[in-house]
Simulated assay, not measured.
Amino acid sequence: MQTSDETGDRAGLGDRLRDGFPGSVAPAGDTRLGRMVARLKAALDAAAVERPVRATIRADLIDLVPRLRRYAAALTYDPLEADDLVQTTLLKAWEKREHLPGGPALAAWLFAVLRRTYLNERRRGAGRGSEAGAEGAATERNAVRDAVDRLSHAQREALLLVTVEGLSPEAAAAIIDCAVETVRDRLDQAHDRLARDLGPV
């Protein structure tokens, strides 16, 4: 059972992590991903005329693009590869548009597709990202990213999905394909390690 001090420490750590991974921004309209998102909006609008697509799906799908970009960038360390991953994820969402889940389940579905695509590309050796990481402007941001990079892959993945992206442990477990308790254990280990590496909040 967590004490109130531990809960406060975890909340403060979560704020620092979200500051350390601030890339939750919509793509610029003149980029490949930006043009693709514009085409997706138009296609969803046209599809709604022919056969109604749930009204919330279009808004939710587009609203999730910045979060998908942040997660992809944290996985790949390469903005171009990250945007390619998001494009592939959105194309798969378009193919399944009539069967997409609504609400929080849509986010979990998209993150799972993005993660599987990333892992499949890594297995095929198609990734071009560098594990060196991107340079950040602020010292604190660099310190947070460096500390997260020192975590095991499993701990980092759980931390990014739950603490940075705000998914529930249950949703993260479904995405990673493991037990909820495993996600919680990995989160605890990640939080403990980060608390040691980053010091008091």
Rank of each mutant, 00 (worst) to 15 (best):
D185N: 11
R184K: 09
G14I: 07
D63T: 08
G129W: 00
Q87R: 11
V25Q: 09
R115F: 10
E157K: 03
R145S: 02
T3L: 04
D45A: 15
G34L: 04
E81S: 05
R193P: 03
F21P: 02
H191A: 04
S4M: 11
L85R: 08
L40Q: 06
D30N: 15
A134S: 08
R10Y: 01
A38S: 11
K92W: 07
V65D: 00
E135V: 15
P66N: 00
L13R: 05
L100P: 04
L100N: 02
R184S: 00
L75A: 03
D83I: 07
G166A: 02
Q2H: 12
M1G: 13
A46G: 07
R123G: 06
Q189C: 00
A55N: 07
R141W: 03
Q2M: 13
Q155P: 07
A74C: 14
A107I: 06
N142V: 14
R10A: 03
R58F: 04
M1W: 04
R116V: 12
T3S: 14
D149W: 12
M36T: 15
R35G: 15
E135S: 10
G103E: 14
R35T: 14
E95G: 09
T117K: 09
M1R: 10
A158I: 10
Q155F: 01
L61N: 03
T31G: 02
E135C: 07
G199Y: 00
A74I: 13
A137H: 10
L119F: 14
V86S: 01
